[in-house]
Amino acid sequence: MGTSHGSHRAALWTGALALGAATALVGAVPALAAPVAVGGGSLDWGFKASFRAYVSSGNGNPPIATKDGASRNADGTFDFPSAGGTYDAAAGTAKVNYGGTVVFSHPAHMFEITLANPTLVVDGDGTGSLLADVDLVANGGSTEQHLDQAEIATVATTAPAVTDGAVSFSNLAATLTSAGASAFAGFYPAGSALDPITASASPTATDPTDPTDPTDPEEPGNGNGSASQKITAAVTGGALTLTSSGSTVSLSAATPGQTATGNLNAVTVSDLRGTNAGWDLVGQVTDFTATGGASIPAANLGWTPVAAVANTGLVSAKGVTSAVVPGGPVAAGTGLGTSHTLCKAGTGSSLGSSTCGAALSLGIPESSAAGEYSAVLTLTLA
Rank of each mutant, 00 (worst) to 15 (best):
N276R: 08
S192M: 02
W45F: 02
A31V: 12
S178V: 15
K95A: 11
W303Y: 10
Q149L: 06
A161D: 13
V325Y: 08
S57M: 11
G292P: 04
V121K: 03
T241Y: 07
G262L: 00
P35A: 06
L377A: 12
G262Y: 00
P329R: 07
A70I: 15
L17M: 08
A233S: 13
A234W: 09
P208G: 07
V269Y: 03
T204V: 13
G100K: 11
F187N: 03
C356N: 12
S226P: 04
Y188N: 12
T275N: 00
D133M: 01
G6V: 05
T3G: 11
G180M: 11
L25G: 03
D68K: 10
A239Q: 15
R9L: 13
S245N: 14
D133W: 00
L379S: 05
L131K: 12
E151K: 06
G99C: 09
G20R: 06
E218Y: 03
A28V: 05
V26W: 06
L242M: 01
P220C: 05
D213N: 13
Q284D: 01
T175Y: 14
G60V: 06
N139H: 00
A33H: 10
T255F: 01
G328N: 15
G58L: 08
A331L: 14
V137E: 06
T198H: 05
P63W: 04
T77D: 10
K67Y: 02
T204C: 01
G346M: 09
A205C: 08
A83T: 07
S105A: 11
E372P: 07
P189S: 11
L17V: 14
A290L: 07
